[in-house]
């Protein structure tokens, strides 16, 4: 049985995998034939060797630092985003006050804000967490809020006709109906959050994959930069897959649009 999902995976993605391998092979050839210098684009095999030789600092020191920022930032964003969406849903006043601010927060270039975070939090983990939250907060709030609002009036009336109070309607109708939209935001956010943590590290850090890639770039070590990028990409894909899996477990039974 364990072969089955793997087989399905290869069936679905075989064309993509083929394309990917061909591109890598071409890059490898271009660099080895000295058509492109290796400090611009490293050879894929060189990147893999880099990861293998430096797995200890890369994975244990830097990846774990980035993941810690990610986990704290993303969790805080999900909790506060969902709470804010619920407050906006229940109170028109809060919605009118806060919703524009949430939208504007997306218009502000985060890189421009980051010196302020460094000013507030110094070079501690919290300046990176702040960037992470700011970058992934929006999809969570909007996804949850739109989901909560999307509930069909007819269903609400049906439950009201049974004598349901506002809390029961929220619990039995609005929450389940909000899940698909919440998860669209959740899946976007989980990827953004990793990007946020990495950007946060550019601003000033002593460890983390963002910090590492920047340092390698300063050393003109393209292999090092691409090693960090490769690891971040793989982690991003895994996180997205995890989010999709959670979504499937909770809504896919009934939600056809997935």
């Amino acid at each position: 049985m364990p072969m089955k999902p793997l087989k399905k995976f290869f069936q679905t993605y075989r064309l993509f995998l083929l394309f990917f391998i061909i591109v890598l092979a071409i890059v490898e050839w271009l660099v080895r034939a000295d058509i492109i210098p290796s400090f611009i684009i490293p050879t894929p095999t060189g990147v893999i060797q880099m990861i293998i030789h430096n797995w200890r600092p890369l994975l244990i020191e830097h990846l774990s630092a980035t993941m810690l920022e990610f986990i704290i930032g993303f969790s805080l964003a999900v909790i506060s985003g969902v709470l804010l969406a619920i407050c906006m849903f229940f109170s028109k006043t809060i919605e009118k006050m806060v919703y524009p601010a949430v939208v504007i927060s997306q218009m502000v270039p985060i890189i421009a804000l980051s010196p302020i975070f460094v000013l507030w939090f110094g070079y501690t983990i919290w300046s990176k967490v702040a960037v992470t939250i700011l970058i992934c907060f929006f999809p969570i709030v909007v996804g949850t809020y739109d989901g909560l609002k999307s509930c069909d009036q007819e269903y609400i009336e049906l439950l009201r006709s049974m004598g349901a109070n506002r809390f029961q309607i929220f619990q039995k109708l609005h929450i389940p109906m909000a899940l698909p939209s919440f998860f669209s935001g959740f899946k976007m956010s989980i990827v953004f959050a990793l990007v946020g943590a990495t950007i946060g590290e550019w601003l000033g850090a002593s460890k983390g994959l963002g910090y590492y890639s920047r340092r390698m770039s300063g050393n003109l070590n393209a292999e090092g930069v691409f090693a960090a990028i490769t690891i971040l990409t793989i982690v991003g894909i895994l996180l997205f897959a995890l989010a999709s899996w959670i979504e499937k477990r909770t809504t896919n039974k009934w939600n056809n649009s997935n």
């Binding site: 049906l158 039995k172 009934w254």
Partner: peptide, 11 residues
């Protein structure tokens, strides 16, 4: 009360 549509909760 039974409305026009069945309105069974899909989940």
């Amino acid at each position: 009360y039974m409305p026009q549509k069945d309105l069974l909760l899909p989940w």
